[in-house]
């Protein structure tokens, strides 16, 4: 390795910023191994993500959240405790997904940090509940950390909410409004040149990576729930993005069966149904790789037409888009600003 220590003697007065944006990182000598009869869960599904340990508790515990005692059953994280009480401060926990145990915690956004006596600041979504833990949501360090991290998430987002198919149903928008973020301290992506082209190749699902918060929910939905093995994480650092296990560049070239589960779980407008205005539909989530082949693409749909993914529709019916009151702030951000 080399590179960080070079003196800036070349023409560029500022240290160079020449991140390689094109290629995948090279893969060192293939060394996938087996030990005894342990199952290699990644052998078939190359999700590109780490195999996390089990971050939930293994016994019933009682913890205290902002002075309120809560008893949690086994297999709980601190976030399970937080959701049971009124916390002193709002904890966005943006990337967590509470509706399906098979998805997450990915613990990427760090907007769920809380303060504990024993372990300092910890991510509540992925910290096992341990007997007697005393946690607070309202210490200055916890608040600051959640706020800064939320702004870091927004920083990588284009925030073109008015033209977004998830406007009014976006979890990022929702937590930002709850958190009263008016002007993210680090701004948002505004330079058109920095934007990734939108993948509209599939007639069913559109991918706008500029809105992706890399929460990995779609990858887990596609692999751990649907076992379709289409989506993966790829690249490192600023080049990290969702991609396809068959190395296709576009959704259409992938092995997607258009089951729609990834769209259902996506918290933002990164994955949305195509042709939303024409009320085109996608099949109900729950279609698996096996039962949806041949029934999906180009078939007549029997499912009811809808503008959004069904799980969200059920929960958010009749809800007014929240954009209206926000006209002065970030949500009206446009290119020519």
């Amino acid at each position: 390795m080399e590179g960080y220590n070079t003196m800036s003697t070349d023409s560029d007065p500022i240290w160079n910023d020449n991140r390689d944006t094109t290629d995948m990182e090279s893969i060192w000598e293939k060394n996938r191994r087996r030990i005894d009869d342990q199952v290699e869960i990644n052998a078939m599904l190359a999700t590109g993500t780490a195999t996390d340990p089990d971050v939930t508790s293994n016994e019933t515990t009682t913890i205290t959240v902002d002075d309120q005692a809560i008893t949690l059953e086994s297999d709980s994280t601190l976030l399970d405790g937080l959701t049971k009480v009124d916390t002193e401060e709002d904890v966005p926990a943006l990337c967590s997904y509470q509706k399906d145990d098979r998805i997450g915690p990915r613990s990427t956004c760090r907007t769920c940090m809380v303060e504990t006596d024993e372990y300092g600041l910890v991510p509540s979504c992925s910290f096992p509940a341990r007997e007697g833990m005393d946690i607070r949501t309202d210490t200055p360090a916890a608040s600051e950390t959640r706020d800064v991290n939320l702004d870091l998430v927004l920083r990588g987002h284009n925030l073109l909410c008015t033209t977004c198919g998830k406007n009014g149903r976006c979890e990022l928008q929702e937590v930002s409004i709850e958190d009263e973020v008016e002007h993210p301290r680090y701004g948002v992506v505004h330079d058109r040149d920095e934007l990734d082209p939108i993948d509209e190749s599939s007639p069913f699902i559109q991918i706008d990576r500029n809105k992706c918060i890399l929460c990995n929910r779609c990858v887990e939905a596609c692999n751990d729930v649907q076992v379709a093995g289409v989506l993966r994480m790829e690249g490192q650092a600023g080049d990290m993005r969702i991609g396809f296990q068959n190395e296709a560049e576009t959704m259409m070239g992938s092995t997607c069966v258009s089951c729609g589960h990834c769209v259902t779980v996506c918290p933002t407008g990164a994955l949305v149904e195509q042709d939303i205005v024409e009320e085109a539909t996608i099949p109900l989530p729950g279609f698996t790789h096996a039962n949806s082949v041949g029934k999906v693409i180009g078939e007549e749909y029997t499912s009811r037409p809808r503008r959004m993914s069904p799980m969200y529709t059920e929960e958010h019916t009749e809800e007014e888009p929240k954009i209206d009151e926000q006209t002065d702030s970030i949500w009206q951000y446009s290119d020519n600003e």
């Binding site: 590109g48 195999t51 910290f127 490192q236």
Partner: peptide, 17 residues
């Protein structure tokens, strides 16, 4: 550990445990 297990892409695991 991820590299030893043969993952083609490296990222950190959560902790604890």
């Amino acid at each position: 550990i991820e590299a030893l297990e043969g993952n083609h892409r490296l990222e950190a695991r959560l902790r604890p445990p």
